[in-house]
């Protein structure tokens, strides 16, 4: 029975993949799903923030200051997740020249850069009470800063080309170089840190985080993923319309949305 059902599932996946490659289909699909994404984002964010800011106990060392992790840590995770997503889409775009993959890669870059920026800002806000300074050359923060430069490089290169698709392909290649580079940067920064600073305050030691802190954190992580989905689908829709502006389906949508009369 399994032998019978798996090909159909596979066929459905293949069909879905091909449908997704078609711009009008993706445009409609994204339009249908966006409201669900934003609704789920808001619900999970409210639950997560309520759990993190009100229900979770204060830290015995840091008091309430630690509560910024409910923003900081999910954003830090997302900064990496979005990069991986961007590089993955970029690879698909480079190898198979899939237009939609190129668009998704390039449209996720600004979102990832925003996550990285929020991570840096909340990190330095947290750093002030922790280290007594807005900025410390902590290995994680420094790697995050380099990640921001990687994002900005990808965005900058994409916009430096006059031909959007050519720019997307070049920027995707840069993103892939970054995939190789980022771990090297991280470990070299860690090594550099031990060389120069002896010991730094460890934000997450081996100490276990309690469940009452963990579940709001995970809920917030879910919320940021959903936000990425909402934001990316919206951006991709706009980019797709721009790229396909001359096509009939895009014209039809423009006419539909135009004020009548």
């Amino acid at each position: 029975m399994n032998a019978h059902s798996s090909p159909t599932l596979w066929n459905r996946l293949v069909l879905w993949y091909h449908q997704m490659g078609s711009p009008p289909y993706f445009y409609a699909f994204a339009g249908r799903w966006r409201p669900w994404f934003i609704a789920a984002t808001l619900i999970t964010a409210v639950i997560g923030l309520y759990g993190g800011l009100l229900l979770a106990p204060a830290d015995y060392q840091q008091g309430d200051a630690y509560r910024i992790i409910f923003i900081h840590v999910p954003c830090a995770w997302m900064s990496l997740f979005t990069y991986a997503f961007m590089a993955g889409c970029g690879l698909v775009g480079l190898v198979w020249r899939v237009k939609l993959a190129e668009i998704l890669a390039m449209e996720s870059a600004p979102i990832g850069a925003a996550f990285t920026f929020v991570t840096l800002v909340t990190g330095s806000l947290w750093g002030k009470p922790m280290w007594g300074a807005w900025w410390t050359w902590d290995a994680r923060l420094t790697s995050e800063l380099v990640l921001l430069f990687l994002y900005l490089g990808v965005i900058g290169l994409y916009h430096a080309f006059e031909d959007t698709r050519q720019g997307a392909r070049a920027a995707a290649f840069l993103a892939l170089i970054g995939v190789v580079n980022l771990p090297i940067v991280h470990y070299s920064v860690v090594w550099w840190n031990t060389l120069h600073q002896g010991t730094t305050v460890r934000l997450f030691g081996p100490s276990r985080i309690t469940w009452s802190m963990l579940w709001p954190l995970l809920t917030m992580a879910l919320s940021t993923h959903l936000y990425l989905g909402w934001s990316l689908l919206g951006r991709a829709r706009v980019a797709l319309l721009e790229l396909e502006g001359g096509k009939d389906w895009a014209r039809a949508i423009a006419l539909e949305d135009a004020p009548h009369g």
């Binding site: 290169l157 080309f161 070299s188 920064v189």
Partner: peptide
């Protein structure tokens, strides 16, 4: 990195931005 910018408008600042992440380990 500069190979990727061939065919774009002249962009010295962009080059520095793209190259910095690659240079960090070398400098360290």
């Amino acid at each position: 990195v500069v190979a990727l910018t061939v065919g774009t408008r002249r962009s010295g600042m962009l080059l520095a931005l793209m190259l910095l992440p690659l240079m960090v380990p070398v400098v360290i």
